[in-house]
Amino acid sequence: MGKTENPGGDEPVSRPVYFLSDSTGITAETLGNTLLTQFPESNFNRTTVPFITTVEQARSVVDAIDAIAARGLPPIVFSTVVGGDIRMTLAECRATVVDLIGTHIRQLEGALGTAASGKPGQAHGLGNAVRYQARMTAVEYAMEHDDGQSLRALEKAQVILVAPSRCGKTPTTMYLALQHGIFAANFPLIEEDFERDGLPVPLRPFAQKCFGLTSTPQRLSQIRTERRRGSSYASLQQCGYELRSAELLYLAHGIPYLNSASVSVEEMAATILQKMRLKH
């Protein structure tokens, strides 16, 4: 599927895409966007409508989508609405509706021999209170142990990300905590660490928990320049030196590592979970 061209000009037309949910919309966005990545040549204008909890709200959404459809290309709709009446109302809109819940609910009802509850919000964190609380505790731990701020209870960490500044340690530890309930700390590698023999002292008892991040000198310099333009900290030479030194450190201590330059946080987290054999 290629770009849809505008008959009146050379600019491609963006296909309207709606993510509809009876809760936050995060699941609809995640699953829908994953499917849309398979069509990289297409352009999309995305809109999320969360908390559709009544038939009246659903009808209002249908009216809005139908109005968009009347002006051009029919929208694409990704829905994670659970309630049957609301789901059926949304299905009436003049759009290509991808029901991300309904089809699979029917399959599971057949397999389990029982009807689904039909209650919204069960897929968004609060359905399992124990797991939700575990994630919040992991987030608190990640915040306390961000960038080496605290060494307290470092033995409780399931993984410790180590890397030079601005290689993606903080967003990755937060994602591991929030999405997977992993106790993740992170520790910065500074120039003095590369001049010493071995890992930074606080990390030495926990070398087996360490996972390294690296980047490319060009990408790291670009990110650091946004923070400290014109500084030696952001220079290509300094970035190259720190990254080379970090990789040598990882290799010397058998620390697995990953180049974060062109990898998403989600992909980094998945790789870390796999390589460190972390259960979540």
Rank of each mutant, 00 (worst) to 15 (best):
L178E: 13
L213D: 00
A28F: 12
S165M: 05
G148Y: 00
S262E: 04
E144V: 08
Q274Y: 10
L154N: 02
E144D: 12
A269Q: 01
I101F: 09
V159R: 12
Y18K: 07
H180L: 06
G8L: 14
L36K: 03
G72F: 10
A261R: 01
E140R: 14
L243G: 12
R15K: 11
D147S: 08
Q57N: 06
A234V: 14
S60D: 11
K3L: 12
G102Y: 07
D85I: 09
L199V: 02
I160N: 00
Q208V: 14
F211H: 03
D193T: 03
C210T: 08
S245V: 12
T114I: 14
H145V: 01
V17K: 08
M174P: 11
R46Q: 12
A252V: 00
T54L: 10
P200Q: 02
E5T: 12
R106Y: 11
E267H: 01
L258S: 13
V17N: 02
A252P: 02
V130W: 09
G127F: 07
S221Y: 10
E155L: 00
R106G: 14
A95E: 11
R219N: 10
C167I: 01
Q107K: 13
Q208S: 15
A64I: 05
V81G: 03
N43V: 10
P256G: 09
T172Q: 01
P256A: 10
V17W: 05
C167T: 02
R196A: 14
V77A: 07
A184N: 05
S42D: 08
I76A: 03
R166G: 04
R46M: 11
G9P: 04
C93Q: 03
A177G: 04
Q238T: 14
S231N: 04
L220V: 12
D146R: 00
R59Y: 06
A116D: 10
G118Q: 05
A153Y: 05
A115Q: 10
Q133H: 09
G110A: 11
T170G: 00
V62C: 06
M276S: 09
V49F: 13
G32V: 13
E266K: 08
C93Y: 00
R277N: 15
S165D: 01
A157N: 11
